[in-house]
Amino acid sequence: MAITGVGLFGFIIAHLLGNLLVFAGPAALNEYAKKLHDLGPLLWVARLGLLGMVGLHIWSAIKLTAANKQAREVPYKSDVLPVDGHRRDDIAVKFAARTMIFSGLIIVAFAFYHLAHYTWKVPQINGIHDDFETYYVQADMVTSANFTEGEQGKNPVDVYRMVVTGFKVPWVTGFYVISVALLCIHLSHGLSAMLQTLGIKNKNTEKWVDKGAVIFATLLFLGYISIPLSIIFEFVKLK
C-alpha cells in the first residue's frame, strides 16, 4: 500500500505542477502537452506504470482488508460509551482513516470519468455540444519551432481550450472539486500512514509527519481546485 502510495503521490504532484501551467497561458500549457505526447513510447511506459500502481494499490487494499476481517471473526457486541457514541472501531480513529475505502472508491470512479473526459475525449460526457477532438492547435504554441498545425482527431490538441471549455460546465467543476476534496482527505491520512509504514517517522519527525500530511493535502486541494474555479469565475478564459 505504502510503496504504491509513494508512486501515486508522485504522480499527483507532477500532474498538479503540469496543470498549473494553465495560468501561464495557452501557449505554455499546449507546449507542455505536446512535449508529453512527443515522449511516445516513454509516455506509454509511464501510463502503464501508473496503471500498474493503481492496480497494485487496489489489490493490496482488497487483500489487506480480507486478512484484517479474518483477524476478528467474531465481532464485538457492545458499543463504545466512554469515548463517543459511535461504533467501537472509532476509538481515536479520525474521519479520514475511517473512510479510506469510500474516498478511494469515489476517486477511482472520478479518475475514470476524468480520463474519459480529457484523454479519451468521449463527447457524450463533457456536458457541451463540442467534441474535444475538434480542438486542435492553431497558432498558440510558444516557440514556432514546436508549432505544427494540428489536424482533426490528431495531436497536438488545444489542451488549453479543452480545459477552459470543459470546466465551464458547473456540474463538471462540482464533481471535480468534490473528488479532489476526497482525494486530499484520503491523502491526509494516507501520507502519514505511508511514512509510518515505511518507517520514516521517528522521534524527531513524528510531530511534523501528521501535521505535514494535513498541510500538504490542503495545499494540493487548493492547487487543484484553483484551476476549475478560476475558469468558472472567468479569471482564466479563452482569448
Binding site: A67, A71, I91, A92, V93, K94, A97, H189, Q196
Partner: peptide
C-alpha cells in the same frame, strides 16, 4: 498467528 495489519488508526495507542 493470524493478527491483522496496521492501518495507522491509533486506536491501540489510545487504549
Amino acid at each position: 498467528e493470524g493478527f491483522g495489519s496496521c492501518t495507522v488508526t491509533g486506536s491501540c495507542e489510545a487504549v
